[in-house]
Simulated assay, not measured.
Amino acid sequence: MPIATRAFAATDSSSPLTPYSFDRRDPGPDDVAVAIKFAGVCHSDVHIVKNDLGNTRYPIVPGHEIAGVVTAVGENVTRFKIGDRVGVGCMVDSCRTCVSCREGEEQYCVPGMTQTYGSADPKGAAVGQTITQGGYSDAIVVDQNYVLSIPDALPLDAAAPLLCAGITTYSPLRHWKVGPGSKVAVVGLGGLGHMAVKQAVAMGAEVTVLSTSDRKKADAERMGAAHFLINSDKDAMKAAAEKFDLIINTVSATHEIAGHLQLLARDGTMVMLGLTTEGLPVFAMPLLWRRRSVAGSLIGGIRETQEMLDFCAEHGIASDIEVIAPDQINEAYARLEKSDVRYRFVIDISQMGKAA
């Protein structure tokens, strides 16, 4: 039978998120049904709710950092059983046949991955769903191939943000082969940045945090950063020239990046992770003179996401979180836009009934 689901949804680009009820599909042979316990709040949720990209379809239930417990499995499911601790990240399906999918890089699916919320949802047609709906809800049904196992060493609440923030930073650190001896700079100590610091330190890198002020310096040092650099300090920036092999830029607002290129060593790369909606000028000369690169990275594939969860469990890494009730989500959005969180909001879905 369809699963009656309680949620918080946006009904347009300017109104607050409000309680919303809908049906999840009956689990099919390959599906896993999950009782959601916690859902992280990502800055991209705010972008989608506010229709900053111009393609949001309403009503929309955001949330792609999902941690919960299996409540039912289909007859073909072999990887999970009832009671397992599981996670769902930014995607719930892909074409499975393109080169990217066959190589385990489903996030770069050529026709396009099926995102956890806001994508066309043919599987939901039987219960009247035209688009996928996300984790600000108390249940979800997902194909077993897109479900992750959360190790027992990770608390479910602090594990939830790993499903987006954690893998978004882990994937480029692995792709650019960060390890002992690497010098990594992280621009912005927020939801993504604090995960990048913790992971890069665990990989053996010497990590520097770049920020606009020193108010998070103590936090950066607690997380293992060796250095803290204020990017408006021209002398300090000059002294750090050509120091870094990799810069992980996590800032999701429009900001100046051309000056940061001088911090890269020869063959160094700045990887852009923040979802900015305006262009960021870059000049050719700093790139040409040291064969530097500016690159982008999305999330990771399912295989790499599971690797990340296991790595975080092994090294005792989890997100720094502030747990909120579902009816605090609008306040959290307002605070998130002011960078007033250290470092990830997580919704306690067990309180959904009280709010909705």
Rank of each mutant, 00 (worst) to 15 (best):
Q199K: 04
A200L: 08
A200D: 06
V201Q: 11
V201N: 07
A202H: 05
M203W: 07
G204Y: 12
A205Y: 05
A205K: 07
V207K: 03
V207I: 11
T208S: 01
V209E: 10
L210D: 00
S211W: 05
S211Y: 10
T212Q: 10
D214P: 04
R215K: 15
R215V: 02
K217I: 04
D219R: 02
E221G: 01
E221W: 05
E221Q: 14
E221A: 04
M223R: 06
A225I: 00
A225K: 02
A225G: 01
A225L: 03
A226C: 07
A226N: 05
N231Y: 15
N231M: 14
N231F: 14
S232P: 01
S232M: 04
D235K: 01
A236T: 09
M237C: 06
A239P: 04
A239S: 13
A240T: 05
A240V: 06
A240D: 05
K243I: 01
K243H: 08
L246S: 06
L246C: 09
I247P: 00
I247F: 00
N249S: 15
T250R: 03
S252D: 13
S252E: 08
A253G: 02
T254L: 07
H255R: 04
H255E: 05
H255P: 03
H255V: 02
E256H: 09
E256D: 12
A258F: 02
L261T: 00
Q262G: 04
Q262S: 12
A265K: 15
D267Q: 10
G268I: 10
T269I: 11
T269M: 03
M270E: 12
V271N: 03
V271G: 03
M272R: 04
M272E: 13
L273D: 01
L275V: 15
L275E: 06
T277E: 07
E278Y: 06
E278P: 03
G279C: 02
G279R: 08
V282Q: 08
V282F: 08
F283E: 13
A284Y: 11
M285W: 12
M285Q: 11
P286S: 07
P286K: 02
L288Y: 07
L288V: 15
L288Q: 09
S293V: 03
S293Q: 13
S293A: 14
S293E: 07
S293H: 15
V294H: 08
V294T: 09
A295Q: 10
S297V: 08
I299G: 05
G300S: 01
G301I: 01
G301S: 04
I302Q: 11
R303M: 01
E304K: 07
E304H: 14
E307Q: 13
E307P: 06
M308L: 12
M308Q: 06
M308C: 14
L309F: 13
D310S: 12
F311K: 04
F311I: 09
C312A: 12
C312T: 01
C312N: 02
C312W: 07
C312D: 03
E314W: 00
E314R: 00
G316R: 05
I317M: 06
I317W: 10
A318Q: 14
A318D: 15
S319T: 10
D320H: 11
D320Y: 05
E322L: 00
V323A: 04
A325L: 10
A325T: 15
P326E: 10
P326F: 03
Q328D: 14
I329T: 14
I329F: 13
N330G: 10
A332P: 10
Y333T: 01
Y333F: 12
R335Q: 14
E337A: 08
K338H: 14
K338F: 06
K338Q: 15
S339R: 11
